[in-house]
Write a protein that binds this DNA or RNA. Structure first.
Lengths: 142, 142
DNA sequence: ACGTTCATACGATAAACGACGTACTACGAT
DNA sequence: ATCGTAGTACGTCGTTTATCGTATGAACGT
């Protein structure tokens, strides 16, 4: 289940002579190959309000521009945030990479557009339109 | 297939007085108003393989053309089929109406296109492309 | 060495989900 | 009246999900 690279974390037992975590070997994260990305998986990943909010945040960024997890203000705890980012990554929607102490996130726009042309834009445009409607409703006299 | 006789459709409300006991107020089904349809709900409804298969079946039909539940051959039992159709209906993806002993289904194409322009086509085109890829892979020499 | 910051792992929990079987209803035809 | 067909209601079962809290780890400054 966890794609976290445990090659080094396992070593909590400093048994003196066994694997010592002297070579951090840059934490890596598993991402699905384009061929492993499924439409159902992507749709499911985007069917959660929090995750949609994350993608909405990432969407306007330049191609491959990255943002740390903490850049997005979600009304959930940090551990739940981690969970949602992982779901998005495992579905192939975002790419995550460690940069120092932060974990940067970027939409896998190229891969998704190649696999499902127009899908991402249709979803996010639809979402933007929906939000526009709701805002207008909220502002209109009751 | 698709030649359903609509000549005896609507008339469940008999003129005579009010609700005639023989006509138990024509079973009706609740559908969300366009304003109640959410993007998350639609995405969630379409993120299941069986439901995607249902929509894929309904998609090529003419505008508002209907098909009974039984027209689609799903590898699940009847009760599970009922469940999936209900999820689609409650998400606003399809419209269901009783016609005699059958329950007819149609995509709510107009409503969906108005709310989320391009979304349905993007999803189903993406799905078709994906299936094309998989078929090619399956046929290629191992 | 120490503390701060960012993010994870783990464990718990309550809810939702997908699937099933059985018993049932509604409608139309025999 | 009875039967078959189409679909529902309900209860169950096992899995997944979304959320949390707490403890932990990794990188960076001081």
């Amino acid at each position: 289940m966890s794609n976290y690279d445990r090659s080094r974390t396992i070593v909590t037992t400093h048994e003196k002579g066994d694997r010592v975590p002297t070579a951090p070997a840059a934490r890596t994260l598993d991402h699905p190959e384009p061929g492993e990305i499924t439409l159902e998986g992507v749709l499911h990943a985007l069917s959660d309000p929090m995750r949609l909010q994350i993608v909405r945040f990432l969407w306007p960024l330049e191609q491959d521009e990255e943002a740390p997890c903490s850049a997005i203000d979600l009304a959930i705890t940090k551990s739940t945030t981690t969970h949602h980012f992982r779901v998005l990554r495992e579905a192939g929607v975002i790419r995550q990479v460690y940069r120092g102490t932060a974990k940067m996130n970027a939409l896998r726009r190229g891969d998704l557009d190649a696999l499902f042309p127009g899908l991402l834009d249709a979803i996010l445009t639809a979402d933007a339109a929906r939000r526009g409607r709701e805002d207008r409703l909220a502002r209109s006299p009751a």
